[in-house]
């Protein structure tokens, strides 16, 4: 895998998210209350809501438009809703967030 440094975990608010622009489209990078980081598609499969604007709770995020809830580990919609968002491999090293470039359409590593 080709790991690309996209920033520091402190650049993202606790229980919040930031957007990462990639050749494969916008990716939401989440930070949980426990300082875990997750990367997933920023587009809700329901009606395209920006998941990076949602409320982050536990290891889940709630879409800001109509409250679908996604598990950030699997990308699967929770409860009665059916849907799936892409998730992307991500690593934390000494506070730096590294994402797998290949998975988001990046051809050569930086």
């Amino acid at each position: 895998m080709s790991w690309i440094d996209i920033g520091h975990i402190d650049d993202i608010p606790l229980r919040g998210a930031r957007v990462l622009k990639t050749p494969a489209g916008c990716v939401a990078v989440f930070r949980t209350a426990e300082n875990e980081a997750f990367a997933a598609s920023d587009r809700c499969p329901h009606k395209g809501g920006p998941l990076s604007e949602g409320i982050v709770h536990g290891q889940s995020v709630t879409c800001p438009l109509h409250n679908w809830v996604f598990d950030l580990n699997t990308g699967a919609a929770q409860g009665a809703d059916e849907g799936q968002i892409a998730t992307y491999p991500l690593r934390l090293e000494a506070g730096r967030i590294l994402i797998d470039g290949a998975s988001v359409g990046q051809r050569s590593a930086a």
Binding site: I4, V19, C26, Q106
Partner: peptide, 10 residues
């Protein structure tokens, strides 16, 4: 703003 823009780097 976005945390990073990989489309520019590309």
């Amino acid at each position: 703003a976005p945390i990073a823009d990989l489309t520019l780097e590309a």
